[in-house]
């Protein structure tokens, strides 16, 4: 278990990785990646019981994570590399030809740590439920985690999955929604208002927790609290409030950096706000 300070240092490095990766190929999604950095670092460096090497697709006897909003692949790749799934140098291949680090995550190129392709939204919760059921059949008491965007909740399949998980007591699943209130065309309230998410998930029969997803101590405490609800007959949902673009002042809180890469000057400005705590790849 790393201390909060150590985890904060990892977050700073992961954010450097994210902006450098998207800058290098002038494409990718920095906004959601920066916003979910604390969640990923908490999960992979503190919460999950997982085995980076040798990577086991079946995830037997370990906690398993699914990224449903696959466009935030930069944060996923950085955290996978920094937690030992593959060499951090490989981050330099992000979105380039012949890379295992595709624009959206995939199992197709055999990147360790990825168990499903994602990118087309709304599919990851169903997959996570399937693996949670598989763990139950195998008497594997480990946990399945999944992350989804708030805009992603506009996909109907999410609600099919939500209904199924509650009706069938899939209580070894801890899902999280990145509630940053932003999507490509603007704020989620303006694009398609989703109403009261807490009330909705309650009504669908889930245990619902909420937290500030950019506060490391709070996200860790919330994930630990979520674990105490395991095995009690309900799937568990964390509504995690984040700021899109968190950690880089000019990117923070706006949908404009959802899928846009910084230019050379903007990269310099971003990196000046993010100390190099581990070594850059």
């Amino acid at each position: 278990m790393s201390s909060i300070n150590e985890l904060a240092n990892i977050c700073s490095q992961v954010r450097r990785d994210i902006v450098r990766m998207v800058h290098a190929v002038n494409s990718g999604h920095p906004g959601g990646s920066l916003g979910c950095t604390e969640y990923f670092v908490a999960l992979y460096f503190n919460i999950m019981k997982h085995r980076p090497q040798p990577f086991n697709m079946d995830g037997t006897g370990e906690d398993v994570f699914f990224l449903s909003n696959g466009h935030i692949s930069p944060v996923f790749y950085s955290v996978l590399a920094r937690s030992g799934y593959f060499d951090v140098k490989e981050l330099a291949t992000f979105r380039k030809l012949n890379s295992r680090l595709q624009g959206h995550p995939t199992t197709h190129e055999g990147l360790p740590g990825v168990r499903i392709a994602s990118g087309s939204l709304g599919q990851g919760m169903s997959v996570a439920i399937g693996t949670a059921l598989s763990k139950k059949l195998n008497n594997d008491s480990c946990t399945v985690y999944s992350l989804h965007g708030d805009g992603e909740l506009q996909e109907g399949q999410i609600w099919e999955a939500a209904m199924y998980a509650a009706a069938n007591k899939v209580d070894n699943l801890i899902s999280t929604i990145d509630v940053n209130g932003q999507q490509i065309d603007g704020s989620t309230d303006n694009v398609l208002h989703m109403g009261d998410l807490k009330v909705k998930w309650h009504a669908f029969g889930w245990e619902v927790l909420a937290c500030d997803g950019n506060n490391l101590e709070e996200i860790i405490a919330t994930l630990k609290k979520a674990q105490t609800y395991k095995g009690k007959g309900k799937p568990i949902m964390i509504l995690m409030q984040t700021a899109m673009g968190k950690g880089v002042d000019f990117m923070e809180g706006t949908h404009k950096w959802h899928g846009v890469a910084p230019n050379d000057e903007q990269l310099k400005q971003a990196l000046s706000q993010l100390p190099e705590t581990l070594r850059d790849y």
Partner: peptide, 11 residues
């Protein structure tokens, strides 16, 4: 989706 997830774990 559930079917895809069930394969992870050998089903």
């Amino acid at each position: 989706g559930i079917a895809a997830g069930l394969t992870i774990g050998g089903k």
